[in-house]
């Protein structure tokens, strides 16, 4: 199924939760916050949160800026 992550369309297998998605895509799970369809999913909920077709996911961190 297709989802959008940080603006890019990607294909993933069905029935994947957020935690596994991060692992499978080699995404560092420290110092990040995740939004699914503009709703923040707290870290404690990553395991429970199943990704659905068409979900728009934002993986956010702190970067340099003034």
């Amino acid at each position: 199924m297709n989802i959008i992550v940080n603006g890019d369309k990607i294909s993933i297998e069905k029935n994947i939760n957020l935690e596994n998605f991060l692992k499978l895509n080699n995404i560092n799970n420290k110092n990040i916050v995740i939004e699914v369809n503009k709703i923040i999913i707290t870290k404690s909920m990553w395991k429970e949160k199943k990704i659905k077709e068409g979900d728009v996911i934002e993986i956010i961190t702190a970067v340099g800026g003034g």
Binding site: V5, N6, I27, I32, E58, I59, T61, A62, G64, G65
Partner: peptide, 8 residues
């Protein structure tokens, strides 16, 4: 710090 997308 700025709050932005990570580099995938």
């Amino acid at each position: 710090v700025a709050i932005k997308r990570t580099n995938l």
